[in-house]
Design a protein around this nucleic acid. Structure first.
Lengths: 232, 232
DNA sequence: CACCGCACTTGATAAATGTCAAGGCATGAC
DNA sequence: GTCATGCCTTGACATTTATCAAGTGCGGTG
């Protein structure tokens, strides 16, 4: 692994409290691979042999049932995914595919479990990460169950704007059909929802969003830190 | 704490690998309280001072936003709740209320975190529990996003039947308005959904459900271990 | 036994969301 | 430049789900 990439991984919350020696052991057992776009890295139902870390690019987590598919999350650098399956040694509940050309680290699940037993700092970090993931999914469930699709979109845009540094204008990070699926709606409905948000001062030009009237959209969206604030 | 109750707690996955000494320290710092029905034990947004364990009775986890409320889960004896908030020392994302008269153990969050650092078996158990909770919520999200309300109800009934030992007839564990909220629908709609399931050999008499034609309802519900099997 | 009170049900209607089909508009290939 | 491809949008319509307003029926109380 290149030096720069290695230090990106080292700086992850998950690894930064780990003893050097243990980190190096983990990394020696790991692989780094570059995948082209739209490659399925993981299929739901498979056993979890590796913990995955996205170094560059982006990865979509999605699930299927009865011929239907839904987007569950997008993983962006630098972060891990499918930690829960790894620590429980259980089948994946979601599939994963690259959205673009992506560099991914694969750490054997068994080595993760061994390192957990030897390194208290790492153990603490795993617990913290898992708890955070859990809370993120709970927030997502609240979003889905308590809000209409228009409200979900409005709050999503406010969150994305925040992630883009709070600027008035920003780009959607992936295509609209995926966004629709993530928000639990159809692409057609997303289109109409964007149109409805024009009444609240949201301008849409392709993937470029402009929040022309911040107070107005917030009055409608009613963002809530117990749903929308990913740092809590 | 009475001897029998103490051993119920001791037998929890979370504590059974813990050293006696550490368990006793935890228990000495804890409280046991009996609450009447419909008491709010926890309010979302509050800081998590205690890990809760239901000994008897049952507790509902629910969330609110903008004047709306939704039921997130029901906690039954003997299990913990709000572990994630405890280990992250963060505000609760859900509120909790007793459904009936319930006996609850309260363990100070700080003591949980201390015990984590001293006891590897306990640390492993916490990780395992958190990962399981995470996976349960992911399954719930898949259920919500991939299925219609009728499909959710059908699969819920199959799961409950399984939990009741696979018998043809069983009782709903709580009232229908709560079930409706848990399944993400209105009570009116739940009523109509029950009626629709008669076509698939489901008989409803108050809270008593009879699965008269198991293959028929399963053909419709298409239960999936990656959504409905809580042991995976 | 009568009479609440409450949860549940039912029917009528409205709103939200999904489906289908067609068209527009960008992007990339040739 | 032209064409083809795919994504997105739009409109018409169907389906699902929610809302509102009465009921119904059960369990508890007096």
């Amino acid at each position: 692994m290149a030096e720069a990439q290695l230090s990106d991984v080292r700086d992850l919350d998950l690894f930064c409290a780990m003893a050097d020696e243990h980190f190096e052991t983990l990394m020696r057992a790991s692989y780094v691979q570059t995948f082209p776009p739209r490659i399925e890295l993981i299929q739901e139902g498979d056993l979890s042999d590796f913990l995955h870390i996205v170094l560059t690019g982006s990865v979509e987590l999605f699930s299927t049932w009865n011929g239907r598919e839904t987007s569950m999350a997008t993983v962006r650098p630098v972060s891990t995914f499918i930690l829960a399956a790894t620590v429980r040694n259980s089948p994946y509940l979601m599939s994963a595919r690259t959205l673009e050309k992506s560099r991914v680290v694969l750490i054997p699940s068994q080595d993760i479990r061994t390192a957990f037993d030897m390194d208290l700092g790492f153990a603490r970090a795993i617990v913290s990460e898992l708890a955070q993931c859990y809370r993120a999914v709970i927030k997502n469930t609240k979003d889905l169950k308590l809000r209409s699709s228009l409200e979900r979109l409005a709050n999503y845009l406010i969150r994305e704007q925040h992630r883009a540094g709070g600027r008035t204008a920003f780009q959607l990070p992936y295509d609209k059909r995926r966004l629709a699926s993530f928000l639990g709606m159809t692409p057609e409905n997303l289109s109409r929802a964007f149109k409805s948000l024009q009444d609240y001062g949201v301008e849409v030009d392709g993937a470029r969003i402009t929040i022309a009237d911040q107070p107005r959209i917030e009055r409608f969206a009613k963002p809530d830190r117990l749903i929308d604030d990913y740092s809590v």
